Amino acid sequence: MIETFAALSDPHRFRIVELLRSGPRAVNDIGERLRLHQPQVSKHLRVLKEAGLVDVQPRAQQRLYELRAQPLRELHEWLERYHQLWDARFEAMDELLEELQQEEKPHGRSKK
């Protein structure tokens, strides 16, 4: 999990992952679309590969990089636990606010 966060923390690597969502791409295509030089793209793809976020498929003279779903699923599941925790806390806060609003009503305050 930490490797996934570390790999995605770099804006260029994050943009590469976003680009690969639409399907496999060659290094040169990634570089052109993101306006990065080939050595930069290769460096970032190596980090993403080491983190398990991408696979490489050799095709003729090219290497196509594609996303691996499993690490992203694991990240989603991990984040979902926190999402549920915060939802529960916000619900409790909503209940408290409703309670406080109900307590204010009986004091006879009139609205003008």
Rank of each mutant, 00 (worst) to 15 (best):
L75N: 10
Q102L: 11
R81P: 01
V54W: 13
V54N: 06
Q70W: 13
P58W: 00
E77Q: 12
L48K: 11
E98R: 11
L100F: 04
L79I: 13
V56M: 09
W86Y: 15
Q70S: 11
G52N: 12
L75W: 10
M93I: 12
E104D: 11
L79C: 13
Q84T: 07
P71G: 15
L96S: 14
E95H: 09
E66P: 00
E91I: 06
E95N: 07
G52S: 07
Y82T: 06
W86Q: 10
E66H: 07
Q70E: 15
F90P: 00
Q62K: 12
E99N: 12
E104A: 14
Q61A: 10
E95Q: 10
W86D: 04
Q62H: 11
L97C: 04
A51R: 08
L64Y: 13
P71V: 10
L85W: 11
Q102H: 09
L75E: 12
E77S: 02
E74C: 05
Y82M: 05
L79A: 15
L72W: 05
A69T: 11
E91W: 03
A60E: 14
Q70L: 14
Q62D: 15
E99A: 15
W78C: 02
L96H: 09
L67Q: 03
R81G: 04
E66D: 05
E103A: 08
Q57L: 00
R59K: 09
H76P: 01
L79F: 12
E50A: 06
W78Y: 09
W78P: 00
D87V: 11
L53T: 06
E80D: 15
P71W: 10
R81T: 12
Q57K: 00
A60W: 07
L96V: 06
E99M: 13
E103Y: 04
R89H: 14
W78L: 04
G52V: 03
L96A: 11
L67T: 03
A92I: 01
D87W: 02
M93V: 15
V56R: 11
